[in-house]
């Protein structure tokens, strides 16, 4: 029997749902293969979250608590993970694929001499390690991968697995941790434009995404109206983040975020492969575009050909009616 460790990501004072998805999946895998599942929380207030994590059935929860984790910095995070790994001695460490994970996954693999697969959409345990599926070529196709070795790291795209609660009274183990300036190596000088209380796109049920077609003020106004009616997160194509119209953290696609909401409404977005790479696994896709040949229509469940300035007002109006 070996240990499967799940990293629990915290963002804006909340547990990232995607890490609980990973934990749910790992627990099922562990049951099948007779392993045990443990979790690790690394945060300035790590202990605050243990109760919630227990709902998902790990047998142990490691916490590493230190003010340094208030903001993301790779050196202390790596050091903390190294300590936990030393103690838990896992054969697999699984992460939700976040920007923070991406920052450290390679380094951690090198440090632990572990095999690593990033950004997988599914994975399962095998005799020697794991087998995993990864979208490649801008998510146009899937590759099948194997990772072998005594320790394997994997990061998982959000929305890959369903949440499944199974409460446990997991033992909480606090890991002693301190940092000095030398450990930090880099100085975090400022956090710019944290998107604050806006909806986290990687967890949003509904996303309204704006593209170059909705670049002007009036377009932006309509987008936020639509998002309000649907209680949706607002995302953007690169055309808008590049132009400074939208915050860069809202970019969806190969460079930006990968999302998989129940409903994705693409407004004035052409559907370049690099954008589609980030949203093609949405459950229902609606596209509003005035060009009937726009590639976005090839993947849309509902395509409205028309000028967004004409389409959105009645669309919003009708949705309001439905809501009330």
């Amino acid at each position: 029997m070996s240990t499967l460790l799940t990293h629990i990501a915290i963002s804006d004072g909340k547990i990232k749902r995607s890490s609980l998805e990973v934990l749910s999946h790992l627990r099922r895998q562990a049951e099948q293969h007779g392993h045990q599942v443990e979790a690790v929380i690394i945060d300035a207030e790590a202990s605050r979250y243990t109760g919630q994590v227990q709902q998902y059935g790990p047998s142990k929860i490691y916490t590493v608590e230190n003010p340094v984790f208030k903001n993301h910095l790779n050196a202390p995070l790596l050091k903390a993970l190294e300590k936990v790994i030393e103690q838990a001695d896992p054969s697999l460490v699984a992460f939700a694929s976040t920007e923070s994970t991406k920052d450290i996954l390679g380094a951690l693999a090198a440090r632990e001499e572990a095999a690593v697969l990033s950004d997988v959409s599914t994975f399962e345990l095998t005799e020697e390690g794991i087998r995993a599926t990864r979208p490649v070529m801008a998510a146009k196709i899937l590759s099948e991968n194997e990772a072998r070795g005594d320790m394997i790291l994997v990061s998982v795209r959000s929305g890959s697995y369903d949440l499944e609660e199974q409460a446990s009274d997991a033992e909480v183990i606090e890991i002693d941790f301190s940092v000095d300036d030398q450990d930090l190596r880099a100085t975090l000088e400022e956090i710019i434009s944290s998107s604050g209380d806006t909806i986290d796109l990687s967890e949003a049920e509904t996303i309204v995404a704006a593209g170059r077609g909705a670049k002007d003020e009036k377009g932006q106004q309509l987008i936020s109206e639509l998002a309000d009616v649907l209680n949706a997160g607002v995302g953007a194509s690169r055309a808008l983040t590049e132009a400074g119209v939208m915050d860069p953290s809202l970019q969806i696609g190969q460079t930006g975020k990968v999302v998989s909401p129940q409903l994705y409404i693409a407004v004035g977005i052409s559907g370049a492969i690099q954008h589609v790479a980030g949203m093609a696994s949405s459950k229902v896709i609606v596209a509003i575009n005035k060009d009937p040949d726009a590639p976005i229509f090839d993947i849309a469940d509902y395509g409205i050909v028309g000028d967004l300035y004409d389409v959105l007002p009645p669309f919003i109006d009708e949705l309001k009616k439905i809501a009330s």
Binding site: S11, D12, L73, T98, E99, S100, I191, I192
Partner: peptide
Amino acid sequence: GDAGQELI
């Protein structure tokens, strides 16, 4: 970063 930008 995940939410905002970090100046490092």
